[in-house]
Structure formats: C-alpha cells, structure tokens
C-alpha cells in the first residue's frame, strides 16, 4: 500500500519534471534574445558567430537540442553555464543552500508571527483588539514582499543602520566550510560569528518574504480557530475548568491548523519564487539572484537548471505538506 503510494508519487514527479523541462527549454529558445550575440564583442565576423553557434549546438533543431540536453540531464549533467563557464549543476547546488536557509527562516518567522497573531486574535475575538489585528493584517498583506524589502532597507539600513543591507555574510570572515549552509554548518562547528553575521544579513530579506505570508496565516488560522471554538468539545473543555487560552492551545489549535497547513504549503512555494526579487534587492547570493543574471545574460543552460531545481523543490514541499497532514489528523492514518 505504502509502496504503491510512493511509486505513484515518484512517477507523477518525473512526469511533472519532464513537462517543466520541455516548457522551459522551448520557451527560452523561442523567446527573443540571442545568447551568442551577448557573448561576442561588437564587430564580430559572421564566421565567429557561426562557429560559436555550432559550438553551443544552437544550429541544431529544437528536438535535437532537447535530446542532447536531456541525455546529459539523466546522467546528472545539466550543461555548462554560457556566462560563468562552469557546470550548471555545480553553480546551482552552490547557491541552493543560501536560498533554502533564507526561505526556511522566512517560513519560520511567518508561521511564528502569524500563529501568535491568530491565537491572540482568537483569544480576543469580538473585541477592539481583534479589529485592530485584522486591520493591521490587511495592511501588511497589501504590501508586496519587494516593497517590504525597500521599507526595511530604509528603516534599518539608512535611518537606523543596525542590519547589513547587502550580501549574505561579512566578507572579512574566514569561512572554510565544506557546505554553503552557513547557518547550519556554523551551528554544528560552533562558529557563532558566522551564524550571527549570516542571520543579521538574512533578517531583512527573510522578514520581507515572511510578512505577507504571516498576515495570511494569521487571518486564516484565526478564522479556523473561531470556528472550532464554537464546537462542543471546546465548550466541554471550558466546563472542565480550562481557561480560554488553554482551550485554544490544547483543544482548538491542532484541529484548526489543517486548512492553514494547506495554505502554508502553497504559499511557501510562492515565497521561494519571491526570493528571486528579494535576493536581488539585498544582493543576497542565492539562486534567485543568480536566476535574474541568467535571464539577463540569456544563459540558457543556467536558466534551465535553476527552473528544474525550483520545480523539484516545489514538489518536495508539497510532499512534505501531504505527509504532515497524516501527522496532524489521525483520521487520515487508516485506509
């Protein structure tokens, strides 16, 4: 039963990834903009252009190019970046940790902040506090992540410069880590100077990504909590002497969390998409920043590699969300 689920899941994953590969491969080649033209200096001869075009295989037909690329991909070779002249796989995996750490930090902030506001809102339901929280939520939600980025730069980079506004870590630090997971490896190695510097660089971009999601979580979770707080088992808990806060945390929260979990799963993928522009604003050395450069330079192999990786990431996240359902809801564990 479980094996069948896993196999089905794996098959759909491969089909999805193949679909994404076809679409992105075709799209970057059909869209205007010539990578060869970007590489050569002005005044290059027709012959130079023809040579370079042949070298990168752009003279072949689209299906042929796709077949060549795909045969490399199944062997783990995503080609070589045109601008950076390094294997795409290496480049992308080198940047992935930075983006993962940033999005996970954003997610943690969003869930904590949103959850807290939801619980307070549910506790103070029907009062002015709830109205105030609703209004704040609406305001926070209506400002997009990149605008939050600019607001934070202005507040904590210019007016009160306490946080670092660009980069991922203080360049003066000597980092001889084996991975690019600066926060995780720094914690494991006890290099708290690196952890501190990375976190202080991450805080503003993470907050920019987290705030709109936090507002969404707060709103939906509060609504679900309020619905659950009408149900008989919460009434019974009150009769048994539990305070309203205890009723919310012990009885209502887990039941109310399910719709929010779906939202978080879907929104987390949007959040990772949001890293593209937010990383740019903070010159954060992650995948998103690299993606923008790749698009500007028409670095086709790199674009393809990044998009495939994002797609794989989304699929993994959805899988994790599905798994956490069964943890939260015992009714799904059987059958």
């Amino acid at each position: 039963m479980l094996l069948k689920t896993v196999l089905t899941r794996l098959a759909t994953t491969l089909v999805t990834l193949f679909g994404v590969a076809v679409v992105v491969f075709t799209l970057v080649r059909v869209a205007p903009g010539n990578p060869i033209a970007m590489m050569l200096p002005p005044g290059a001869t027709e012959e130079d252009i023809a040579n370079l075009t042949r070298l990168y295989g752009f003279d072949k037909s689209l299906p042929e190019q796709f077949a060549i690329w795909l045969s490399g991909v199944v062997q783990g070779d995503f080609g070589t970046s045109i601008t950076l002249r390094q294997p795409v796989m290496e480049l992308v995996l080198g940047r992935l940790p930075a983006t993962l750490e940033l999005s996970i930090m954003a997610l943690v902030i969003a869930v904590t902040l949103g959850g807290l506001v939801a619980v307070i809102g549910a506790r103070k339901r029907g009062t002015g506090t709830e109205v105030g929280l609703d209004l704040t939520n609406g305001a926070v939600l209506s400002v997009p992540d990149f605008l939050w980025g600019l607001i934070f730069v202005l507040l904590f980079g210019v007016l009160w410069p306490v946080l670092s506004i660009s980069g991922r870590v203080d360049p003066r630090l000597d980092i001889d880590f084996t991975s690019n997971f600066y926060v995780i490896e720094g914690l494991l190695r006890g290099r708290f100077d690196v952890v501190g510097s990375t976190l202080s660089h991450m805080l503003m971009p993470a907050m920019s990504l987290a705030l709109p999601l936090a507002a969404m979580i707060a709103q939906l979770l509060k609504q679900s909590l309020k619905e659950v707080l009408h149900l008989d088992y919460t009434t019974l808990a009150r009769v048994r002497g539990f305070s309203e806060t205890a009723v919310i945390l012990r009885e209502a929260l887990r039941n109310a969390a399910l719709p929010t979990l779906t939202l978080v799963g879907v929104q987390f993928t949007f959040l990772i998409g949001g890293t593209v522009i937010v990383e740019r604003i903070f010159a954060y050395e992650g995948l998103g920043n690299m993606a923008i450069d790749a698009v500007i330079n028409r670095d086709l192999p790199l674009i393809q590699g990044i998009v495939i990786l994002f797609a794989a990431l989304f699929i993994v996240i959805n899988l994790l969300v599905d798994l956490s359902y069964t943890l939260l809801n015992p009714r799904l564990r059987h059958g």
């Binding site: 008989d232 019974l236 009769v239 305070s243 809801n329 015992p330």
Partner: peptide
C-alpha cells in the same frame, strides 16, 4: 470569570447532547 470557572469545574460537570462532536477528534 476565573473563580467562577474553577468553582464550576470543582462541583459540576456536563453530559453533552451530541457525542459525535463532544470529543476532540485529534486527541
């Protein structure tokens, strides 16, 4: 309200109408 809640919990209990909704489904 807090004292009232404690007093009631010490001396009184409720058998609810609908047993299907009166137990927390996830506990």
């Amino acid at each position: 309200p807090a004292t009232r809640r404690k007093t009631v919990a010490q001396s009184a209990a409720l058998i609810p109408q609908d047993p299907l909704t009166a137990l927390n489904p996830v506990r």
